[in-house]
Simulated scan of single mutants.
Amino acid sequence: MNTPTPDSYFTRMYADTADPWDLAGRWYEQRKYALTLAVLPRRRYRRAFEPGCSVGVLTRLLADRCDRVLATDRVPRAVAAAAERNRDLPHVEVEHMVVPDAWPSGTFDLVVLSELLYYFDDAQLARIMRRTAESLEPGGTLVTVHWNHPVPEHRLTGSELTPLLHAEAGLVAGPGFHDPDFVLHTFTRPLPDGSLPRSAAEAEGLV
């Protein structure tokens, strides 16, 4: 089935609770976020983009590693919750935005697509990946994380998304993590000369 998840699903999920997936409370989520942050190759990023931020739990963790973070979601109630969670962080901006029809201006050296891509049809998914690649700075990092069990509202699992992500032009696959419950990937946009940024060890003169 090649149809996107309807907006009514998200509205219904947030109708009775501010955090429908218990992102702030579950150990599963805490561990997944820790692995997401650990796999990032750079200690610090200039500007990050996190579409589909939900209630902003990962947003706050990203803020510790980034000079600026733009977090967005399609559900107004989620946007309000994320803004409230991060209101003491002036370098975090939370906006209502429906990707891929809307996309922020400027470029990013980190894009985080977490629990997002399986909600879109083929055309929308292709546009998101294309816009991500175009807005990612040379040497920048893309990290993707997706649940790997079938869900009626998810068009694809994390494993089924994998070949589509690896096929995106202009991005080079890096380290990842295949958990029984989710699939995590990193990608890098090459530098203008076609090379990749130095590894963490190389950057600190260890090799």
Results as ranks from 00 to 15, higher is better:
99 V>P: 06
159 S>L: 08
38 A>D: 15
36 T>D: 07
59 T>Q: 01
56 G>V: 05
17 T>N: 14
120 F>M: 07
34 A>I: 00
115 E>P: 07
194 G>D: 14
81 A>H: 08
124 Q>G: 14
184 L>I: 04
201 A>Y: 14
3 T>H: 00
144 T>S: 11
78 A>L: 11
48 A>T: 03
50 E>L: 12
18 A>E: 15
11 T>L: 15
119 Y>L: 12
104 P>K: 08
104 P>A: 01
53 C>G: 08
50 E>I: 00
39 V>E: 11
25 G>S: 13
190 P>F: 10
69 V>W: 01
69 V>L: 00
103 W>V: 03
116 L>G: 03
2 N>Y: 00
71 A>P: 00
172 V>N: 06
165 L>D: 14
166 H>M: 14
29 E>L: 03
56 G>K: 01
129 M>W: 14
6 P>A: 02
39 V>W: 11
22 D>C: 02
28 Y>P: 01
38 A>N: 14
14 Y>T: 07
76 P>M: 09
84 E>T: 11
123 A>M: 07
60 R>Y: 00
158 G>P: 04
135 S>L: 12
106 G>M: 08
133 A>K: 12
107 T>I: 00
194 G>C: 07
124 Q>H: 09
184 L>V: 00
131 R>P: 01
113 L>C: 13
131 R>Y: 03
65 R>S: 09
73 D>Y: 04
66 C>S: 10
38 A>Y: 13
69 V>A: 10
32 K>A: 11
101 D>E: 12
177 F>S: 08
183 V>W: 00
66 C>M: 11
54 S>N: 15
152 P>T: 02
142 L>Q: 09
164 L>F: 05
155 R>D: 10
12 R>C: 10
62 L>S: 08
120 F>Q: 03
48 A>G: 09
71 A>I: 03
200 A>C: 13
4 P>N: 01
128 I>M: 06
192 P>M: 09
79 V>H: 14
156 L>N: 14
201 A>H: 14
41 P>L: 01
147 W>G: 05
99 V>W: 03
87 R>G: 06
91 H>L: 07
162 T>M: 03
35 L>S: 02
28 Y>M: 07
76 P>D: 13
